[in-house]
Amino acid sequence: MRVDAPGRAQGPALNVASLEVRGGEIVGIAGVAGNGQSELVAVVAGLRAPSAGTVEVDGREPGGGRRRRGARSQVDAGVALVPEDRTKVGVVGDLSVARNLALRHAHRRPFARGMWIDWQAVGRHSQSAVAAYDIATPSTGTPARLLSGGNVQKVILARELDRDPGVVVAVHPTYGLDVAATSQTHERLLAAAGRGAAVLLVSEDLDEVLSLSDRVAVLAGGRVVATMAAADADPEALGLAMAGVAA
């Protein structure tokens, strides 16, 4: 997956020169919040169209560059997103766990049949997902907002990672989670990369970024100011780069 010069969007300008994440690789984004992380994520996940430049997955623009389709093009191109705001964006709190597990995929098989939705397929899928991802919920019919934060994240991970996506974007994936849920999330992300996904990890937890990533890209002022192998990166050098001081 590569992002080329998405140019100036609204808000903090994002002007990534070029960022490429290869299959099987985890690239961590380090940087102080407000330096273009959320814009980068929005552009990659299709929530916002870049004012210039392109996002390519496997050498193709999702949706053939048609911008009005929004996130659906990205979903169809195999771009998964573990969003920053779990409870407001990642799930619909009032809807059941089963429906939340079908959320971004209800327009495709096996859930969709023409213009209709096969709710039995949704139910069956939710049963297996709850088991596979160890989601603690009274039932698959329970509204998602009654779940704990860790279990909401498991619902999201189950939905986003279960279909072997080509690209995974994870934003603050362990923020506010307990130790067990955190390590489980880490394992899931590593496993996704192991299955060949290109993983873009945005986190404010520098230790997390360093321990999971193969490479680290530093965003400052909306630009990738440095890219380095995680093995070579030490917190001090990163900190300087994040502050905008040339390494």
Binding site: G70, A71, R72, Q74, P83, K88, V92, R104
Partner: peptide, 17 residues
């Protein structure tokens, strides 16, 4: 319609126009 009515933010994330 249901997703949009309950959470516009989640609807955008879900690719709903």
């Amino acid at each position: 319609v249901e997703v949009l009515g309950r959470s516009p933010e989640a609807a955008r994330y879900a690719g709903i126009d």
